[in-house]
Design a binder for these strands. Structure first.
Lengths: 207, 207
DNA sequence: TCCAGGACTAAACAATTGTTCAGTACGTTG
DNA sequence: CAACGTACTGAACAATTGTTTAGTCCTGGA
């Protein structure tokens, strides 16, 4: 039981993260969180002031993890167009709980979620700028929409996982499946759906 | 007051659709639905058996509307690649309430939502088949992922509307904005992000 | 006319909700 | 040792939840 060597506050936060991701915030009672942490419901108030305070703490924790992962990423920009794919793989792919929580956060209209999305959008824009100069050409179409399109391709699988997974025989975020999807996304962004054939021995990083 | 000439059952269902779309199912009380419809909470039980039954009725209504729109669509396949864009425009674009409800439905893992998504996926697949033969070439990359990518581009704006809208100065589903986005999506699917320049006098249908 | 049935309501039900309160155990500091 | 603050608890609080019950109103068929 590795959860038990955490402080009570942290145990509550972890349990809340898991339950909020599974059932959503409204559908999760403070009692359920406390029970999952093996503690008294009154502790939620004692540590976080209110259930809403608990949500804020979980939000902060999650956004912190994402921020850290994004910061780690700036170091290894080995290949163009690969970075956001690595994010998607390392972060979204790794932890199903984090995926579930993010899925719910991105659907709300809280300032925090809008800020997170704006950050992701900036990342995509920067990546596309680098990419377009290296690719020689100017950005196609409406350059305003390109970063958004890119984000749709990356976040789509995250958001649609619950409805898409039943149509597949393998886990969507299995490393191999994710790598193949990333490769397909790269090809789409570069050449469209009907571009040159994929080189079968291509490396499988990036997005 | 055009809502008042509906039967009580329909008024409850409409109010529920609106409130569920706004706040979500769990966060909406049966009393709130009844109050919005100007009726007694007991009527929810009388007409639908339970709050869950009300949700089922709303689901059926919404899926019915979508099904009808999809069926209407089969007639006018004027141009390749345009159909799903028209769906997105006519259906998702038209009604913000429907958008909100769909957004929430697609995030759940109910059998109904998976079935709806499977239908959309089939539509995308069929569209891409038609498109790939007309386009001369075989489908690029992993043809398994192509329909999913297409759906991500179409459903992405729907799902991400709450977090994306704050980054824009015009409504995301304004007809003109939506047309421009559809055109950008078409170009991406055909030629990638760095393909030929957009012909400025292009018509604005499709996706 | 009577009456059967559906639409509809007010009032109350038990259960669950977030939260408060009084109090215990415990380590730290004076 | 005393005092204190912090982690923590069980029991209770008021409010809200979905649902039930008993009953009223009204319409349509016999």
């Amino acid at each position: 039981m590795p959860a038990s060597d955490l402080t009570g506050r942290a145990r509550l936060r972890e349990a809340a993260l898991r339950l909020f991701a599974e059932r959503g915030f409204e559908a999760t009672s403070a009692r359920a969180v406390a029970a999952a942490a093996g503690l008294s419901p009154a502790l939620v108030i004692h540590h976080f002031g209110s259930k809403e305070g608990l949500r804020a703490a979980v939000d902060e924790e999650v956004l912190g993890r994402i921020g850290a992962a994004l910061r780690d990423l700036d170091g290894d920009t080995e290949d163009l167009m690969s970075s956001l794919g690595v994010v998607s793989a390392r972060m979204f792919g790794a932890d199903p709980v984090l995926r579930g929580y993010l899925r719910r956060v991105l659907l709300e209209e809280s300032p925090a979620s809008a800020a997170l999305f704006a950050r992701l959008l900036d990342g995509a824009r920067a990546e596309l700028d680098r990419l377009s100069t290296s690719e020689g050409g100017r950005a196609g179409g409406e350059p305003d929409w390109a970063p958004f399109q890119m984000l749709c391709l990356i976040l789509g699988p995250l958001l649609l996982e619950p409805v898409m997974q039943p149509n597949l025989d393998r886990p969507m975020f299995d490393p191999e499946v994710l790598a193949r999807r990333s490769a397909a996304n790269q090809r789409l962004l570069r050449h469209g759906l009907f571009g040159p054939a994929p080189s079968t021995t291509q490396d499988q990083r990036g997005d």
